[in-house]
Computed example of a mutant assay.
Amino acid sequence: MRTALVVHAHPDDEVFATGAATSVLSQQGWNVVLRVATAGMHEASDHLSASCALLGIAEWDWLGAPDQWIDDGARNGPRTLTAAQPEAITAAVKTAIDKLQPELILTVGSDGLTGHPDHIAIAQAVQRIQCRALGARLRAEDVRAGEHLVQQFAPGEQVGSGHVKGCDVPLQQIGGASEQLRRQALDAYYDGLGSRPLAELITTHRPSSDGLLLRAVFDATGWQQDRFEELTASSDAPSSR
């Protein structure tokens, strides 16, 4: 069986960044395995098993030792991925690769998808290893479409943190996933963020939240696909459906 290794900084990244792709790979018969570096800001790892079951991820475990790194809300404290020695993160990724022998690695793209420094640290660690890897990116036009949706319900408010930019370069697409299952996986972390109407979410989520912006991007452009850049020289990605 072909194995795909998914590497992320935080719980919920597997929904926002690679949720469609893992569903499609699982449907195609791949063994999809997740390694996550931190428990998130609110010990969100409690919800990982539910999310993984919905997104076709067969099992998850920690990247490195449990509690080796923490998420402190992008303040870049001493125990974060951002502050860690790059070699230590790379070694943890290499250990997972050596154990699992994946044919493909999925992670975030070179911009961290949202610009989060922990995300970027993970992408850079993967890039240091000679392997077939795809990094999730957003198109700039899709970010603008999501911003426009939020602005309709929150005129004059800042939308997102300002770090979610997207790109204008060609991206590979893996598509054909279930919108319903991805929405449910997002709900596993944040009550209603996947399923409630955007107009209602504006009353409970700050317009400046990147999570709300990504939800709006999915609404504007579709939940069923993810787009990727090549992080290393590799053959073509699995075909879209």
Rank of each mutant, 00 (worst) to 15 (best):
A121L: 02
H8K: 07
D71G: 13
L212Y: 00
G73I: 03
V150P: 02
G29V: 02
H42Q: 14
C167Q: 05
S23P: 04
T82A: 14
P155V: 01
R35V: 15
R227V: 14
Q124G: 14
S161K: 09
R206P: 00
G166Y: 14
V169T: 06
A220D: 00
I105Y: 04
A188L: 12
A220R: 00
T90P: 01
T204H: 05
L81K: 07
L181S: 06
L198G: 07
S26P: 12
P86E: 02
D236M: 11
R2L: 11
G64Q: 05
A145G: 02
L186S: 10
Q124K: 15
T107W: 10
G192A: 10
S161Y: 05
T82W: 10
A125I: 05
A44H: 13
D46G: 11
P170K: 09
E87G: 06
A84Q: 12
D72C: 01
L201F: 04
S209Q: 04
L48A: 05
Y190E: 13
E147Q: 12
A39T: 07
W223V: 07
E147P: 01
I105P: 09
S239G: 09
T38K: 07
K94M: 10
I105L: 15
D118F: 09
V150R: 02
H10I: 03
A83R: 06
G192H: 03
Q180N: 13
E229F: 12
Q85H: 11
Q68G: 08
R75H: 11
H10Q: 15
S49K: 09
P86A: 01
L186H: 09
S110A: 15
G19N: 08
I122N: 02
G56K: 06
E141V: 12
Q224L: 04
L55N: 01
I97S: 10
V164K: 06
A74E: 15
E157L: 02
A37V: 05
Q85G: 07
R196C: 12
D12H: 11
L63E: 10
H205V: 07
A121M: 00
H47P: 00
V108T: 11
P102C: 05
S45I: 14
S110W: 08
R132G: 14
P117S: 07
V108D: 10
G40F: 09
S209I: 02
D46V: 15
C131E: 07
L186F: 10
I120T: 12
H10E: 10
V33C: 03
V24W: 06
R227N: 13
E87K: 04
A140S: 11
D142G: 01
A21N: 11
P238I: 07
I202H: 00
E230Y: 12
G194C: 12
S23H: 11
A20F: 01
L54I: 02
R182S: 10
A220W: 04
D111L: 12
R182I: 14
V164C: 06
R206L: 02
V93F: 12
K165D: 01
R139N: 13
T90A: 09
R128T: 15
Q158H: 02
W30F: 08
Q184K: 09
V108G: 08
F228R: 03
A92R: 03
Q130I: 11
A39V: 08
D98F: 01
E141P: 04
D226C: 04
S161F: 06
P197L: 09
V93L: 09
F218E: 13
V143L: 07
A65F: 02
A39Y: 08
T3G: 13
L214V: 11
V7P: 04
